Amino acid sequence: MDPILEMLDDVLADVAPLTDGAIADYIPELASADPDQLAFAVVGPRGRVISTGDDRAEFTIQSISKPFVLALALRERGRETVLRTVGVEPSGEPFNAISLEDVTGRPANPLVNAGAIATTSLIEGDTEERTGAIVDILSAFAGRSLWIDESVYRSESETGHRNRALGHLLRSYDIIDGVVDDIVEAYFRQCSVLVTVRDLAVMAGTLAFGGVNPVTGHRVVSERIARDVVSIMASCGMYDSSGEWLLRVGLPAKSGVSGGLVAVAPSQFGVGAFSPRLDDHGNSVRAAAVVERLSEDFGMHLLEIHETISEPAISVERVDGGVTVRLGGELGFAGAERVLSVLKDAVRADVHVTVDARDVARLHPAAASLLRARLDVDPGSLTFLE
């Protein structure tokens, strides 16, 4: 069994017994979700997506769309125009709070509902054109064509009175320009795009690797835009629990009320998780627990000390019919994936491989576990020196 997948399965098994929280029922179509669904996916710098659990289950993206539409607004309108429309400060309030600056009427940030509606208004065109541009950017981040769940869209539109009120309030301050109903309908449509947990991992990975989709290799947005979006996710992505999230998990993230969650480990991994039960902040209980466990076990906290992360120094020497793989720098979880690919090629060639990690400045325990797991698979073919 793939040692990385085995470690992810262990994380999922530990989190599965959690039954806290409740499914979002204020959008009728979401109330019918299976509360026991649980899935998890990661994608590394080489574009390999690894997933486990209910990883083929589809669900609507909901508020996870917000950072990616922000990226589109930044690309189309520029940072200064976006900042005149919406702030970048944590609100400290629930995601649907009516909270605007006293004088300007500007929303606190793009990741609460008021700010997301303002961001959507910055995308040019009528409802159809705006929606098309948004679906296109979400698809580019995911690396495949996405589409809208029309039944969820209708359910959101029929019950979205508070969001319409936010739209009209923003219009009264001239924060948004145009027909309020057109803008809000486009917002409902962006939230109703269907994704899987694998899509979320690739979308997060595109931000993690500076705007380049790790699967397709296509540049979706510039490095600066990716950095700006990830910065806002770090402080605002988990609503009024964002501060505690940054302390405990240390990964920029964004949640959605269907139970999805994306997290960004810069230069290491994009992460997607899904489980429908939500806590009082509107964040998935089990998806959050999965990502917290991943961060803790695999050393992904944003503020953990690193030298090199996803690209450790690797040299391969072929001597006396064997192969020695020498490692240097720091070897973390992401870098270990690259080492495993080197070992896979060498073992397939039916030669003895020595992995010499004695010059590694810092060997993270998760990376060492992955390499030892490979020893268990091919005990006679590998020697690990540390």
Results as ranks from 00 to 15, higher is better:
A289K: 04
A289E: 12
G270E: 06
T216Y: 02
D297C: 11
L207A: 01
H218V: 12
H306L: 13
L247C: 08
Q268C: 13
S242L: 06
V339C: 06
V342Q: 14
P312D: 09
E330T: 14
A336D: 07
L278G: 08
S267C: 03
G259V: 08
F269Y: 13
V220S: 08
M300H: 06
V290D: 02
E330A: 15
D228Q: 12
V291T: 14
S255R: 04
N283G: 11
I305W: 14
I232S: 08
R224P: 00
V316P: 06
V291C: 13
G217L: 12
A334N: 02
S275V: 00
I225F: 00
I309Y: 09
L340F: 01
R293Q: 08
G321I: 13
G260P: 14
E311C: 08
E304P: 05
A253Y: 04
G335S: 12
L246M: 15
L251H: 06
F274Q: 04
L261I: 10
S255F: 09
A204Q: 04
V220M: 05
S267A: 12
P276S: 12
S231R: 03
R338K: 14
H218Q: 15
D228I: 07
V319P: 01
L340G: 01
A226T: 04
R318W: 06
E223T: 11
P266S: 08
F298Q: 05
V285L: 06
D320A: 14
G237W: 00
A226K: 08
F209P: 02
D345F: 03
T216F: 01
V325G: 10
T308H: 04
V230P: 02
L327W: 10
R318G: 03
R277D: 06
V230Y: 02
E337F: 03
E292Y: 04
L303W: 13
A253C: 06
E304H: 13
E296I: 10
R227I: 08
G243Q: 10
T206L: 03
H301E: 07
A226I: 09
L247Y: 12
R326G: 09
Q268L: 15
R248P: 00
S284W: 14
E244K: 12
D228C: 01
A265K: 11
G260W: 11
D345T: 09
G270Y: 06
L343P: 03
G270S: 07
G210A: 06
A336I: 02
